[in-house]
Amino acid sequence: MFNAIGIWVAIGLTICVYSFLYKDNPLFKFAEHLFVGISAGYLLAIAYHTNFLPYIYYPLKSALTEGKYREFSVLIPSLMGLMLFSRFVPRYNWMVRWPFAFLMGYSAGVKIPVIMQADIYRQIQGTIQPFGDKSSLWAITNAVMIMLGVICTLIYFFFSRERKGLSGGLSEAGIIFLMIGFGASFGYTVMARISLLIGRVDFLLQNIPFINSIVSNGR
């Protein structure tokens, strides 16, 4: 029973959202706002169980009841976390900067070496490495093309000189690579969106009585 109602609710809401294709209407707006509310509530419940309890509540409890005084240290970051709420109080909203400064500073520091390694060094290496394989003409042609593609793209995003002469030509070549790249990304985006639609259509066809008999026969 519980499940049967669930499926009808899901079907109903799916149709509410698709009604937007005809035009914007109250059913769509209702579904949209319901979604916003439910996902916020979901987030709250998940955060309570997987974060608030293990990181703040349990440590404090063990500090108070079992005398593990070291666990009181969670109060410092918790206090910083609470400072985030000062954003809603104009007089004290400067306090929000402390936790921000901590989070921004720490993630900025963490980022620099890992980005250097993952996004610069390994990419340089990945561009050079294929030149070690001189076994086939095809491999070496591809390696040359990729090297040129990387260099031309970099030159396209070079801003301190005017685009003239050699650098102008190379940046023109850069556009060609960029456009093929964006085209490929576009093709895959189409695939992704269509897949989502297929998922929904599959759901509807399997769960609406009548229709599911036709489809399952077809299979």
């Binding site: 990419q123 790249g181 985006t189 992704a192 969106r193």
Partner: peptide, 23 residues
């Protein structure tokens, strides 16, 4: 699918052992 083309540089530099893209 949306992410596939952006992950190819990592795949080709050996930072990913493989890539399963989209449906």
């Amino acid at each position: 699918g949306v992410m596939v083309s952006g992950l190819y540089p990592y795949l080709k530099a050996g930072q990913l052992v493989g890539l399963i893209g989209g449906l």
